[in-house]
Design a binder for these strands. Structure first.
Lengths: 191, 191
DNA sequence: CGCGACGTTGATTTGCCTCAACGATTGTGG
DNA sequence: CCACAATCGTTGAGGCAAATCAACGTCGCG
């Protein structure tokens, strides 16, 4: 049913016979077009989204009315706001497709029942959350240790294909500086 | 056996009869004095530490030979390096007590067996990891949205008692600026 | 075609760092 | 118990990375 997702789960834990059928009962596929929102700031987040094809971003609006991207997700990544999802309080973030996107949704109101039927998923989400947490902590230290130019260079070398997929102003936002500054970095490299 | 820990677990999930006895089989208490290391950079991290009393920090050494703190933990917080713990590869971080500290240790080589006996712990660690992940992502956006002065002010108001517990140069490191700069912020507030 | 979104470039400003010198406090060995 | 060193915090001068603001070129799309 969801071959990409089950393959991803099996990277981290085993699944019993018949797991696919159970997953099919509790998960949904959702498609959305570029610029559609999976979550709008102010709403309660009610789903966790696993990208099969496409690309999404999570961002918030700053006091100065500019967007600040705190997360991208491409194929085989989950994206959600865990704060809002678990507390069921309004989210400060929006999640938006930046390409036409197809994803598997685990809705919050199905989650507990699914975990009861398939306890291996607790383990799966524990492991990927711990990995994501380690990466997020690492990101903070990386930000403090390196200049904007170094961060861009590092990101470009780590995800060369991804840099082509998103507009520059989004990259700049994710990396924590202005589009003008990114433009100047690029000019210097090529000059 | 570990009343602080079981109370913490029960905040997030239920525990069966006899859970305390099982936990007692798999967990250890460890005490260490100020400046002792729970993990040194270069070693493989083999435990996850739940602080009962005291305070620890996790930090790395930058290229310029200065410390960069990426995490504090006080009473009822877990601290570890999940990257090293799960991959069993050498850690880039050190974890050190900054007060005399007493903690409960879950060693990596006991973890799987314990989770098998007490599957509720998978759920517990999933939930607290997701919360910590949300907080870490939030921290990045907060860093990008606010000046050093605003970050200090926000931290001070959020954790007034904690600001008293740690030396200023550690706070400055955690907040991502120099001790000199923190000193100037404080001078301005009091002036 | 014309408008809005995106990227570029330059001039100016600013938040924070670096370096250096100097008190205050702590702790440690003689 | 004192002397001295090490650690920690403060203050000031000068410098740099990156922001801000503004103007302009280009492309895609309704």
């Amino acid at each position: 049913m969801f071959p990409e997702l089950t393959a991803h789960i099996r990277k981290f834990t085993s699944l019993p016979e018949g797991a696919e059928a159970i997953l099919a009962d509790y998960l949904e596929v959702r498609t959305c077009r570029k610029k559609d929102f999976l979550l709008k700031a102010g709403q309660v987040c009610n789903g966790n989204y696993f990208i099969i094809k496409g690309c999404c971003r999570s961002f918030m609006i700053t006091e100065k009315d500019t967007e600040l991207i705190n997360h991208f997700a491409i194929e085989y990544w989950w994206i959600t706001d865990y704060f809002s999802l678990e507390s069921q309080r309004p989210s400060e973030y929006s999640i938006q497709a930046i390409e036409d996107t197809e994803c598997v949704v685990l809705y919050r109101n199905c989650q507990d029942a699914l975990f009861e039927k398939l306890p291996e998923l607790e383990r799966y989400f524990r492991i990927i959350s711990q990995k994501a947490l380690a990466a997020a902590l690492q990101r903070v230290t990386y930000i403090f240790m390196h200049s904007g130019e170094e961060r861009y260079e590092h990101f470009r070398q780590s995800f060369p294909e991804f840099v082509q997929r998103v507009p520059q102003y989004m990259l700049a936002s994710y990396l924590g500086f202005t589009p003008e500054f990114l433009s100047k970095i690029r000019a210097k490299r090529n000059g």
